[in-house]
Design a protein around this nucleic acid. Sequence first.
DNA 1: GCCATAAAGTAAGGCGCCTAATTACATGGC
DNA 2: GCCATGTAATTAGGCGCCTTACTTTATGGC
Lengths: 177, 177
Amino acid sequence: MVSDFSFRDTPALEALARRGARLDYLDPAALAAAQDILRVSKKMLAAFAEAFATHGLSPGRYAVLMALDVQRPSMAPSEIADRLGVTRATVTGLIDGLMRDNLVVHVPEGSDRRRKAISLTPVGEALIDAVVPDIFKRMADLTSPLSADERRTTLRLLGKIEAGLSTAGVKEKEPNA
Amino acid sequence: MVSDFSFRDTPALEALARRGARLDYLDPAALAAAQDILRVSKKMLAAFAEAFATHGLSPGRYAVLMALDVQRPSMAPSEIADRLGVTRATVTGLIDGLMRDNLVVHVPEGSDRRRKAISLTPVGEALIDAVVPDIFKRMADLTSPLSADERRTTLRLLGKIEAGLSTAGVKEKEPNA
DNA sequence: GCCATAAAGTAAGGCGCCTAATTACATGGC
DNA sequence: GCCATGTAATTAGGCGCCTTACTTTATGGC
């Protein structure tokens, strides 16, 4: 199973050995597994970032476009921020770039003039229509080496891991307000 | 299993439905699984980045320190770059920061004066000694909700996924020269 | 002695994200 | 009618990760 470097390719097991006596309460197998998981995680994310790049997008830009695609015809920046789980400032930056590329426009909202609705331009819609089949195929391919059964197992296990993350020191950030 | 947003919280299944006829060759279960995997991956990485931050480190800084810890007494920047799988420019930046914080020093190498060896300072060693137990424990905890058996299963499945990444368009970058 | 090669570092840039401060607008209460 | 308070969006600035392209410095073969 790929010799054991951390998710950044740093050898935890050797470091463990070096400190053996002191850290012998740690399960080496658990440690090694975690490293592998983190390493592969990083690789997957990088792979998708690259896929987006071939379409002139980035994960963030894609996420905004997809949110708009689903929540037609428009969303307020703050809604987008909530859905993506990032700050408004981050969304402002993404929107700026998307507007520069004509993928998205600002449509003024009737009553409350603080609120500005964002919607896809025809160009943006066309891009999403072109990107989705590629990205979705890559996603499906990601888990295609797994049987339906294995997939279920993996999800169950990831669920446990995720639950562990939340209960540990890791702060939760609520997506979907 | 957590309602289905992409690794950036964008609803792929709804997008699938919207394009049903056109994309019906895609397995919705595979797609949903991939999204979950990507989402949890991102969360895990973020959780560790935070853990490093509590020690004044970042994933990159930690990786350099760990590499030096294992490969005592010193490494050339280029070796570090190869081990981490990043460019030398990236390593230069990381080293700069670590030197500023006195965690690492430049020790001139005898014969070849182009080559500059980097090694941990006592402060750096002390920091790593303090950080490792915390990080390793978090790693072990990550997979502790899993039984030994489940862990093996997960690794096997991740192995398949990783193999898929390499064979797909995803360019490989060789760590360990 | 000269020059290709190699190591390290510099410069600039893109993406992901954040906090803090600011600007614009909306409102409820007096 | 007017203002304090609150809310939406944006700006400014910052840190981290990482890249490509270029420069500097030193080596070593010929």
